[in-house]
Design a protein around this nucleic acid. Structure first.
Lengths: 133, 133
DNA sequence: TATTTACCTATTGACATAGTAGGCAAAAGG
DNA sequence: CCTTTTGCCTACTATGTCAATAGGTAAATA
């Protein structure tokens, strides 16, 4: 399951895309609009800054801002950053060569096929695809 | 993420499909072939019996058996039984009408599309599709 | 009656999730 | 310079889930 971290991160990105006028947007505003605890969002945006999705600025007039244009962000990269992995099974999350049963495993090909489908889905969607009304 | 419950359940089903000669297959044999703790498998097959995927028989000559032909089981129904839900986000797992933000949510349509894709994938695969070498 | 099997309840350690609490640091305005 | 606004940092916590383990009872067969 996608956790709140991933889902909230996406909503923060969309909020920033929608209110992008070149200025920094305070987290307080985002938290209020999205009805998410500001304290919790702090943890999330911190990861997003560390991952290079956002820049932050302290002080009056500070806040957060996108570093690229909305259409240049894929949902996949956002989710993968927040969730750690997009893989749906442990066998594939830590590299495909770890399981000693992998050669005879009847289910591994299906998991691989599934993983590819999931990645294709999320990496082909951009922020703009979601924001578009 | 798909848990061991779902993944092991699938492997048990495949093991039973492969060794189906009309007789009951003892869990001990399955556990040894699949290299999974028999004690843990007991919990899993119990759920599968409760869910109507298998029948069990006690005593000598007992064990477990499929109730249908392998091609009549979909991967989807097996996973959904074991995981509780196939939904990838909480918003959709407990019915789509719970979230108060659902009308204005920019991300909900994507989650719905994703959920449909996942269900289509798993419900269109049968045990036979996996067993086929 | 002994053996083999399923079936039942309870418990556990480790970890992740979804936050909360309380402060320090930086930047800008007056 | 001081106050306000903002981000940034460390720590803590309650709750729940996961992945098992432990130890028994019941049923069926030979």
């Amino acid at each position: 399951m996608i956790t709140t971290k991933g889902r909230y991160a996406l909503r923060v990105m969309l909020d920033l895309a929608e209110h992008a006028d070149g200025n920094f947007v305070p987290l307080k505003d985002i938290a209020e609009r999205q009805e998410i605890s500001k304290k919790y969002l702090e943890i999330i945006v911190k990861d997003m800054v560390a991952g290079g999705l956002l820049v932050g600025a302290s002080g009056k007039g500070g806040g957060y801002k996108l570093v690229r244009k909305p259409e240049e962000y894929t949902v996949g990269e956002i989710l993968e950053l927040m969730e750690g992995t997009l893989s749906s099974v442990a066998c594939l999350a830590e590299g495909t060569n770890t399981c000693p049963r992998r050669k005879s495993c009847r289910t591994l090909p299906m998991w691989e096929e599934y993983d590819k489908m999931v990645r294709d889905f999320f990496y082909s969607k951009t922020l703009c695809d979601l924001a578009a009304k």
